[in-house]
């Protein structure tokens, strides 16, 4: 079943298509949600509400662009909404004092995704959100600023601080590995 057929079936409210969509996207979208929300319960909650929105609003999806991208955007938005409910983003953003990462911190390509995920989870929610949106999802600072209700400058500074933290973590890990 290709994507357009799936979307058509979903738009007709086909239960089988809904199950099919869930089976195909539940895993990846759970991963997306987990990148934004540390707590697995929260992530699953967001996943479920995200799928509900997908099923309810699939009629609005015009066959432009990838359906997966559309679903992912919904999930991200849900995650951000949940995050915003949990803790005001701008408060956590400025909390951490940043240490710039050392130059020689090297990212090993053999580092497991799980380890990287743990690092990402270490970030404060605001940093994590901006880094997720910009570095991984590929949104522009302008889009991020709108999504998070922050200014573009804040988005940029958040991103740089998030990167610095990650580099520092990578360096520490490298050190640890070295030891």
């Amino acid at each position: 079943m290709n994507e357009t057929d799936l979307v058509k079936a979903l738009q007709e409210g086909d239960a089988k298509a809904q199950r099919f969509l869930y089976d195909r996207y539940a895993g990846p979208m759970m991963g997306v949600c987990l990148r934004y929300l540390k707590n697995e319960m929260d992530a699953e909650e967001v996943l479920i509400t995200g799928f509900m929105k997908v099923f309810q609003n699939v009629g609005r999806f015009e066959q432009k662009g990838s359906f997966e991208g559309w679903v992912r955007r919904i999930m991200v938005n849900e995650a951000l909404q949940h995050l915003r409910k949990q803790e005001p983003m701008h408060l956590t953003i400025e909390k951490e004092h940043i240490h710039l990462a050392s130059e020689d911190a090297s990212a090993d390509s053999d580092m497991s995704a799980e380890e990287m995920m743990d690092m990402l989870q270490e970030l404060p929610a605001g940093y994590r959100a901006v880094f997720n949106l910009y570095a991984i999802e590929g949104y522009s600072h302008k889009e991020i600023a709108e999504m998070l209700h922050i200014t573009e400058g804040t988005s940029k500074s958040q991103l740089s601080k998030a990167r610095a933290m990650l580099q520092r973590m990578l360096a520490q890990q490298g050190v640890m590995i070295a030891i």
Partner: peptide, 18 residues
């Protein structure tokens, strides 16, 4: 590079929901 590293590893990393 940092962005790319995380993007490659984490963007489509599936996590099975309960």
């Amino acid at each position: 590079d940092l962005d790319k590293l995380f993007r490659d590893k984490l963007k489509d990393r599936p996590v099975a929901p309960s």
